[in-house]
Amino acid sequence: MARPTATPDGSEQRIPDPRRTRPAILLAFLIQGTVSGTFASRVPWLREHDHLDEGSLGLALFALALGGLAAPLLGRRAVRRLSGPRGTACLLIGFACSLALPVLAANLFLLCAGCVAYGAAGALSDVAINAQGVAAEKRRGRSMMSGFHGAWSVGALLGSGAGAIAAAEDIDARVHFAATALVVIPLAMMTIPGLLERSGEGESGKTRQISLPSRPILLIGLIGFCAMFAEGGVAGWCAVFQTTVTGAGDGAAAVTYSAFAIAMAVGRLSGDRVVRVLGRTGAVRVSGVLGTAGCLLVVTSRSSLVCGFGFCLVGLGVAVVVPLAFAAAGRAGPTPADGAAGLVTVTYVAGLAAPAAIGQIADHGSLPIAFLLTTALVAAIPLGAGLLDDPARRT
């Protein structure tokens, strides 16, 4: 169980049992991924229930991304204060409860407002769990972030799978989301005994409420941007690519996304082991080469099977890059929460830009041409691999 220890100012700080820390953080990432997958799986219900056309739905999803982008940028002090055990649990519970806001909206304005709140809650809980992961890595002195993000991927698969079953059984999304929140609340409370107290490092000076990411975090964020752009672009367009370019059926297209998501989960769950063998820089370089090879297969092949294999290679290739970017940003920031908040801001920009950019290029050319942009960005990842290593080991 957790034990108190004296701090330099004479107060007591709770130190959790090290054996509970990793399972607690894994559970926090699993919860966050499950809530994200749950919402994504019921977007079709939202569109049908509210009679939304493509423009209205696009506006609502843009509002979601805007909330996720703005929250870490505008709420730096709140992020620091809520990155401890109880704050992290409360943010996870708030994220689950915010599922209700979009589906209970009575008009488009309220729907967009609900999506902004849901996106903000997701981003703040994302910062908190990543700050916990960075702090755990520092304490253990070994790579752990890839496994934590692997738990997020597993949670997203569980949430989307449960959502698919609920949709098939014609269960109202409002009932589905309420049940999800009721499950999340006790699970989030279970993480508190194992989570780490927020770091006080760097808090002696004044903290601005609105703060842009620092130059080192922006440089690290460029690598995370490339990986997140590929992840968002493939997730949004791989099924469409299969049906329109290779002529695959709807079933094969759906399987392609599932295979991509599973490849990412496998890559992340095994990523810490790879990092221990190759080092952070070596792992990122190998990942970039794998991802680039996958992109080239997608761009050049017109076989559904080969394209599907290419998308899986992309998933394996970018799987460890974002977790390692979060770890590097947490080490580069004055506190883990500051670093994670800065990187969340950058990666949300990538997630917002990728589907739109690919769609615009495809509209004026073709999807294979659009994926050349993804190929170029993934090919740039090995060039900046050293930025994600420990500062003392960077060359």
Score class of each variant (00 low, 15 high):
253 A>E: 06
12 E>S: 14
57 L>N: 03
174 R>V: 06
65 A>F: 14
290 L>D: 03
234 V>L: 06
188 A>L: 08
270 S>Y: 04
260 F>C: 04
159 G>R: 06
340 A>W: 02
313 L>E: 12
74 L>Q: 02
199 S>K: 11
28 A>F: 01
138 K>N: 15
386 G>V: 03
247 G>D: 11
77 R>L: 11
169 E>K: 15
103 V>W: 01
81 R>F: 04
57 L>R: 08
75 G>P: 06
231 E>H: 12
69 L>D: 01
98 S>L: 07
11 S>T: 14
280 R>H: 13
218 L>D: 05
349 V>I: 10
97 C>T: 13
168 A>N: 09
100 A>R: 05
355 P>E: 04
305 L>F: 12
235 A>G: 15
204 S>W: 13
48 E>I: 07
106 A>H: 15
287 S>V: 07
318 V>E: 07
374 T>N: 02
283 A>I: 04
275 V>P: 01
144 M>W: 01
168 A>E: 10
299 V>E: 14
51 H>P: 01
108 L>S: 09
104 L>P: 00
318 V>M: 05
30 L>R: 02
214 S>K: 05
33 G>Q: 10
291 G>N: 09
67 G>S: 08
203 E>L: 12
60 A>I: 08
272 D>L: 02
321 V>Y: 04
352 L>Q: 05
247 G>F: 08
268 R>Y: 00
243 T>V: 12
208 R>Q: 15
257 Y>W: 12
146 S>F: 05
137 E>R: 01
199 S>A: 15
373 L>H: 02
379 A>F: 01
187 L>I: 10
317 G>Y: 01
40 A>T: 05
39 F>C: 08
205 G>C: 06
122 G>E: 00
332 A>R: 09
233 G>M: 08
189 M>G: 14
